[in-house]
Simulated assay, not measured.
Amino acid sequence: MSTSHSGDRDRDEEGRARNARPRDGLGRPLPYGSPGVDRQPEGVVRTPARTVDEAQELLDAGRPFHAHEVFEDAWKSGPDAERALWRALAQTAVGLTHAARGNATGGARLLRRGADGLAAWTGEAPGGLDPAGIAHWARTLATRVDQGERITATASAPRLRSAR
């Protein structure tokens, strides 16, 4: 997807508003012309296993904002029965993003919201996900954030699959 910048709003080929500013590793906009990290392409349909693999790679690289975009693709393109699970994962990734940016209130809130969604999951999770383990990670991280601990995205990245 390419975008253009015309001075008032960035637009994609179909005329929809799309921010074309470069972003840093935590998804913060940078000035036009600055070097940024590559953005995740939107609307990619992946298998659940590929979604988990790509998201884990991004989380391990300290790019939770980008992992959230991978989860969002799964949320929007996956089966109805799985959408709440992928949405909860996207919320935890955005929660980590906000916590790493220093937004403790928003980070903790989104981590807990995602944990609640993950805890509601019953049955076998797609892609080898460990919803209970991720929910525990998110609640623990939210508590650390509430206690004023400085969070870095790389050091705080979750394990999306259980270590069996």
Rank of each mutant, 00 (worst) to 15 (best):
Ser2Gln: 10
Thr3Ala: 15
Thr3Lys: 07
Arg9Asp: 04
Asp10Tyr: 00
Arg11Asp: 05
Asp12Gly: 08
Asp12Pro: 10
Gly15Arg: 05
Arg16Asn: 14
Ala17Lys: 11
Ala17Asp: 14
Arg18Thr: 15
Arg21Ala: 15
Pro22Ala: 10
Pro22Phe: 02
Gly27Tyr: 05
Arg28His: 11
Pro31Lys: 08
Gly33Ala: 10
Ser34Gln: 13
Ser34Lys: 04
Pro35His: 15
Pro35Trp: 13
Gly36Val: 05
Val37Thr: 12
Gln40Ser: 12
Gln40Arg: 15
Pro41Trp: 03
Pro41Leu: 09
Gly43Met: 08
Arg46Thr: 11
Thr47His: 09
Pro48Ser: 14
Thr51Asn: 05
Val52Lys: 03
Glu54Thr: 14
Leu59Thr: 02
Leu59His: 07
Asp60Arg: 14
Asp60Leu: 09
Gly62Gln: 12
Pro64Cys: 06
Phe65Gly: 04
Ala84Trp: 01
Trp86Gln: 08
Arg87Leu: 13
Ala88Arg: 01
Ala88Tyr: 00
Leu96Trp: 00
His98Glu: 12
His98Pro: 01
Asn103Tyr: 11
Thr105Tyr: 13
Gly107Val: 02
Leu110Cys: 10
Ala115Gln: 02
Ala125Met: 03
Asp130Glu: 06
Gly133Phe: 02
Ala138Thr: 05
Ala142Cys: 15
Arg144Lys: 15
Val145Ile: 09
Gly148His: 08
Arg150Glu: 14
Ile151Met: 04
Arg161Ala: 08
Ser162Thr: 12
Arg164Thr: 11
